[in-house]
Simulated scan of single mutants.
Amino acid sequence: MTPILELESARLLLRQWRDEDLAEFATLCADPQVMRYFPAPLSRLESAALIGRVRGHFAEYGFGLWALERKDTGAFIGMTGLLNVGFDADFTPAVEIGWRLARRHWGLGFASEAAWTSLRCGFALLGLKEVVSFTSHDNLASQKVMQSIGMQADPAGDFEHPKLPVGHPLRPHVLYRINRAQWQATLRG
């Protein structure tokens, strides 16, 4: 499949990663507030490795986590996109939607706007039947984004994240889902 290299929303450009994105991305991933629902902040090297994995996902599957750029300023603000879930669970195989934005861009609707654009790509361009999202039980901000793009909580699918040790406070995760019919209903509604 030819990779989908770029998407646009009203205020954002979802684009391929550039080498110069690393500095801002590493700063974002080192911020303890941004990373509070992840096991730990990332070093610059870990952030670079994550960009490498994202690029590899694009090369293999034609989609992934796009770098986010504000159209008005050209500023890099984070990432949003779709990727194959990288662990085994009752709901896998599946494609998940995810996002991570620099703190100074929180509260402006960018996460929801970029996530909606990614969902549109998943259903209209990639022909996906369903997209999932999940986060730590305590991450209410991300759950609010999931709800704002029409995803529905699936309490029966809530799970313990297998990549975190038993007893870790972030291990309990909530699962959200949206299928093509639900997404189409949000377009009409």
Rank of each mutant, 00 (worst) to 15 (best):
His173Met: 08
Gly107Ile: 07
Phe58His: 01
Ala10Tyr: 15
Ala141Lys: 07
Asp158Cys: 09
Glu60Asn: 02
Phe110Arg: 09
Ser9Met: 03
Phe38Pro: 04
Trp183Cys: 10
Gln152Asn: 14
His161Asp: 13
Lys129Val: 08
Asp90Gly: 05
Leu119Arg: 00
Ala26Val: 04
Val85Cys: 14
Ser9Asp: 06
Ser142His: 02
Arg180Asn: 10
Leu101Thr: 11
Gly64Gln: 08
Met35Thr: 05
Cys121Thr: 02
Gly52Ile: 04
Asp158Ser: 06
Gly78Tyr: 06
Phe38Arg: 12
Gly167His: 05
Asp21Gly: 10
Val131Asp: 03
His57Gln: 12
Ala10Trp: 14
Ala141Asn: 11
Glu60Ala: 07
Gly127Cys: 06
Leu42Thr: 01
Ala156Phe: 02
Arg53Asn: 02
Pro32Arg: 02
Ala102Thr: 08
Arg11Asp: 11
Arg100Val: 12
Asp21Trp: 10
Met79Cys: 09
Ile77Leu: 05
Ala115Thr: 10
Gly56Val: 10
Glu69Tyr: 00
Leu5Ala: 14
Trp66Ala: 03
Arg36Val: 11
Thr80Asn: 08
Thr117Ser: 15
Glu96Arg: 03
Met1Gly: 14
Ala89Gln: 13
Glu8Asn: 06
Gly74Met: 05
Pro41Ala: 12
Pro93Val: 10
Arg103Asp: 15
Thr73Leu: 07
Asp31Phe: 03
Glu20Asp: 13
Ile51Phe: 01
Ser43Asn: 05
Ile51Ser: 03
Thr135Tyr: 07
Ala124Asp: 13
Met151Val: 07
Ser142Asp: 04
Leu7Pro: 00
Pro32Phe: 07
Thr2His: 15
Ala40Lys: 02
Arg53Tyr: 07
Ala26Ser: 04
Gln182Asn: 06
Ile178Cys: 00
Ala23Leu: 15
Ala49Lys: 01
Thr117Lys: 10
Asp31Ala: 02
Glu46Thr: 03
Val54Glu: 04
Val145Met: 09
Thr80Glu: 06
Pro165Gly: 08
Leu140Ser: 12
